[in-house]
Amino acid sequence: MIELTDIHKSFGSKHVLRGVNLTVPTGTSTVIIGGSGTGKSVTLKCILGLVTPDQGEVRINGAPMTDDGREAFLERFGMLFQGAALFDSLPIWQNVAFRLLRGNLKRPKAEAREIAIEKLRRVGLTPDVANLFPAELSGGMQKRVGLARAIATDPQVIFFDEPTTGLDPIMAGVINDLIREIVTEMGATAMTITHDMSSVRAISDNVAMLHEGVIKWTGPIADLDQSGDPYVDQFIHGRATGPIAAVR
C-alpha cells in the first residue's frame, strides 16, 4: 500500500502540491486525473524520491520512505514515462533488459535478451525491432518499448505517466488492456496519470481528482459519473465552464 499524507511541494513561489492525501491499496489500479500543471507528475516524483516534498510523508506498506526503503521499493518497481525516456545510446533490447544486464537482477546476456524480446512481443512489437535504436522507432513504438521496459522484471508496483498519449486509438486500447492485464494477472499495484478518459475507464479501480495541489475527490471508478463533485464532473465531461478555470 502506498500512502501519501499532507504532501506539500513548491518550486520557488509556485505552490504545486498543497497537502496531497492519497492511499493506493496493494494490487489495485489507481488513476490520478486532473488538468495540466496541477501537480500529477510531481506527486509521482515525490513517491519515487525524484522530488523531495517540503512537508508530508510517503509510506510504503506502512513504513516511512527512507533511502534504504526507497532502494528496496525501486527493486520491485517499473515506470512508463510520458515520453518513454528510452536511452538513446542503447539498442531496444538493451533498453528493455536494462535491469537484467546490471545490478541485483542481473541475468546472463542471452537470457536477458530472450526476456526482452518476450516483453516486446507482449506489447505488440516484433523481435526485429530488438536491435534497432530508439531514434529509429516512431513515438508510439517508443512508448511500447518503454512499457516493455517497465514490466521487464515483473514489478509489484508500476507507475504509468500518460500511457496512451501519442498512440493511435487501437494501440491505446492495446496498452489499456495490457495495463489491466498486468494489474490483474501479476497482482501489481498501479498508479497512472492520464487525461484520457477512455483510458481511465479501462484501467482504473479507483480514481483520484487532483486540482490546485490537493485531491478534490477520490473513489471507485463505478462512482466516477455520480461523484457529485463539480470539479470531477467538469473534467470528465470536458466542459469549458465550471469551477476549473480554462485559463490557468
Partner: peptide
Amino acid sequence: QIDALVTLS
C-alpha cells in the same frame, strides 16, 4: 532519461 535511470535502481 536521468529519472528513468533512478527508477531502474
